[in-house]
Computed example of a mutant assay.
Amino acid sequence: MSLSVGNAFAHSVIVSQDVKEQTLNRNFLFAVFSMRVTRWPDGRPIRVFVLPDRNPLHRLFVKQHLQIFPYQLRNKWDRQVFTGAGSEPEQVDTMEEMYRKVSQHKGAIGYIDKSFNLNLEKVRVVDEF
């Protein structure tokens, strides 16, 4: 199953309602998901959620939004954990769990398939540029 249509993304970056940013640039998004940036611009901690490495949505998200291969992202996380310089994001097993975790934790960010029925009172979709 293909999750992209032309150049449009078939998945969305979602954040908890308390996150003020309306848009995120690609470099910031990469830094957040690679766990190099751990705080929002206002200083609040970022809580990153991802699907398992082999999940098709995760692989597509990493390739399209972060413009690297999933194994490269995994290597970054592993290196940070091994050296004690950082940690890896919290893994969830399903889109439902992703939605629930992002909606329940302040400063949270994740991604979800656009076909997922979102309650926009609990999470926000952010644009990227």
Rank of each mutant, 00 (worst) to 15 (best):
D53K: 10
F9C: 12
V92W: 01
H65V: 15
M1C: 00
E121I: 00
M98D: 03
D127I: 06
T94W: 00
T38I: 12
R59W: 01
K101C: 09
V5K: 04
I112M: 08
Q64L: 15
I68T: 15
T23H: 08
E21I: 08
V123P: 08
E88G: 15
I112D: 04
F129P: 14
S115E: 07
V126R: 04
N119W: 05
V50Y: 02
F30A: 10
D93W: 00
S2T: 12
L3T: 00
F33C: 01
Q17G: 03
R74S: 14
Y111D: 04
S87L: 11
A31D: 11
N119D: 15
S16L: 06
G6Y: 02
T83A: 12
G86W: 04
R59H: 00
E21H: 10
A8G: 03
H11M: 13
M35N: 02
F61W: 11
V126P: 08
K122D: 13
L120W: 03
H11E: 09
L51N: 09
E88N: 11
Q80R: 11
K76E: 15
G110N: 06
K106Y: 03
F129L: 13
P70Q: 15
S103G: 13
R79D: 14
R124D: 09
R124I: 00
H58M: 13
